[in-house]
Amino acid sequence: MTRLVPTGVLLLGALYCLLPVSWVLVAASKSPGELFTLGAFTPGSGLLGNLAELSAYRDGVFWKWTANTALYAGGGALLSTAVSAVAGFALAKYRFRGRNLIFNVLIGGVLVPSVVLAVPQYLLFAKVGLADTYWAVLLPQILHPYGIYLARIYAGAAVPDSLLEAGRIDGGGEWRLLRKVGLPLMVPGMVTIFLFQFVAIWNNFLLPFIMLGDDGKFPLTVGLYTLLAAGANQPSLYNLIITGALLSIIPLIALFLTMQRYWRTDLSGGAVKG
């Protein structure tokens, strides 16, 4: 009894979480006709047809969205990790006036609702002619308060002061210390920050939805939304939307399963050994 009940509850939870994912996996294999006639979890025979149709949709705009998403999430997360790591290192390892003030103001950014930022960001980008460009989605997502918070905690735990002192005595400049001592020791923490930012940007909807008008620059989230908005009343488009939804979650799920270690250990922001 003491074993069965908790295990059963957890498995129910797992089942609930897997339900929509397994449904889309099966549904993507159905041709438009099979979608409404076969049972919800009976595989169909239309997967290849759906893929071909999706690839052909508006001259392959779906793959354009995929490439855009990879660019936004990959480039944005890379820049974000660099900025967070350098700032976190400075906040953890140097004592200067206003250090805590700067940290608190940067962290306070978490509390600002995204819409308070996104609408004026759009207007300001429009003023300098950058609205509806890749920059409009990339730039606002580089600075992330949570990333700086994680980086500061991680640098504080992973980079020993004695090592920096030794470097200074050997005559290393501060930039050199950062590059040769600080950043290499912070790599595991930086991987975690990168993953968080990657997922956050990949999943972001509001910002690109507001910033972009040209569907050639859309990421997958906005692209799928427009596809849905156009196709909700046309069941003939359902199979495209379903197949697109499946393809859009495969990369992230793969990233999850391969990077388990970094997700688990660092999640609440504590330092991890190795």
């Binding site: 979480c17 897997l18 929509p20 994912v21 997922v199 990949w202 999943n203 909807f205 997958l220 989230t221 906005v222 799928l224 939304y225 859009s248 979650i249 992230l252 799920i253 990233l255 999850f256």
Partner: peptide
Amino acid sequence: LPYAVPGV
């Protein structure tokens, strides 16, 4: 796993 699935 659902954390990997965008809200949209």
